[in-house]
Design a protein around this nucleic acid. Structure first.
Lengths: 211, 211
DNA sequence: CCAAAAATGGACTATTTGGTCCATTCGATG
DNA sequence: CATCGAATGGACCAAATAGTCCATTTTTGG
């Protein structure tokens, strides 16, 4: 309204530090709730209570629930990518890949597999419901997969991974194994299938090691 | 109430063929809607309209929405298992496994990857919401995976798959690749990642072939 | 063909939930 | 310390949605 074509989500008016903090509190609370209960099962009243805000605050920062959902998706995507960057940025050996797998399995074991992947569960629920959210999630998956592929390429540069290996395809396959593992673990309330799936994907990558 | 410990879902009274048909129509319509819109986004009014029934019919056959959801889950599980039995029952060669993959990819390509796996999408949405549904889905996945494992064992018996291969683990890994592939395809609206994931899983199994 | 049971249509109710509005409080700034 | 815009609390509204109920029609079985 103010300046056509400015930000994607234009704040209704000038935001102070206080307002910004409230907004962050809302998104954080919503992200947590939507992760454990699902997006559609999370009500705005749930969010209001969990974030210790009021209805007016919610609508001060978000035009409607969909916009809040998109903010949550963006937030989660950012969090996951940042976390994964920490693990994958310097990946350059098969041992590093194993450590990465162990970290994922361990984190998921804390909740016995429940809730699944923060991105995956939202992707499943939102892909056929909110195209903008779907695209954001698709980009996040692409970036995540890209981090893995870059690591595999570094392994090739270091000479430990054969040049016949296709880093992009291997990365997609590994990501699929991870996501499928999350889903099976969530359904069974047991992380065993997630471990098995990742082990199999790593086994396959191992077959491309040069030594 | 009538006889404690009789059927899991006791029909309210004697069912005639007509009543049974109505019930089937409701479950079918609900299954379709819930597959494309998601379980929580499907309202009872949607189901009523799509099944050409009335509110009284819905509540004649199901105590509440949860019970309808569980009937849908059971139905879908039955359908998928039956379909997969058709493909996997006589599986005894790697070529058969490839045909199985092709059929899955082709079916998913018809809708450009949208909606994902009928079981997987429900599993993701219901696992943290309805424990009974979760268990049914876990059993269905186990049975499906078991069909694959049995096929791999027949390959071992036929001598084409090495005895060092672990059919159970390979089947779980393959199922995870499939489910992860479904999810990525759904999110990207492109079946390519599903193909890549399945190819990688099959490549890995191929490495256990004896010739 | 008749009576009882089953099936049906659809109006109606209660509750949940998304969304609006405004009076009041808070905080930055001159 | 006065003022104005931002921030807030929470009552209130409207739509959506789950669930109830009963009069009527259809089917079944004697």
């Amino acid at each position: 309204m103010t300046r056509p074509g400015s930000a994607t989500v234009a704040p209704p008016r000038q935001l102070t530090a206080r307002g910004l903090a409230t907004r962050a509190r809302i998104v954080d609370a919503a992200a947590d709730l939507m992760y454990v209960k699902g997006v559609n099962a999370t009500t705005l009243d749930d969010v209001r209570a969990a974030s210790s805000t009021s209805k007016s605050q919610l609508y001060q920062h978000f035009a409607d629930k969909d916009e809040l959902v998109r903010a949550v998706v963006a937030r989660r995507a950012g969090q996951v990518i940042e976390r994964e960057q920490g693990y994958l940025e310097r990946l350059r050996s098969f041992r590093g890949l194993e450590r990465w797998r162990d970290a994922l399995v361990q984190r998921n074991a804390l909740q016995n597999g429940a809730y699944g992947c923060a991105l995956g569960s939202m992707a499943s629920e939102l892909s056929d419901q909110d195209d903008e959210a779907r695209q954001t999630l698709a980009e996040a998956f692409a970036e995540w997969t890209g981090l893995i592929a870059a690591g595999l390429r570094r392994m090739q540069d270091a000479g430990s991974l054969s040049d016949t290996a296709d880093p992009d395809k291997l990365a997609v396959g590994l990501m699929a194994a991870l996501q499928g593992g999350y889903l099976l673990a969530e359904t069974q309330h047991d992380i065993a299938p997630m471990e098995t799936a990742l082990d199999m994907a790593l086994d396959h990558i191992r077959s491309f090691l040069t030594k």
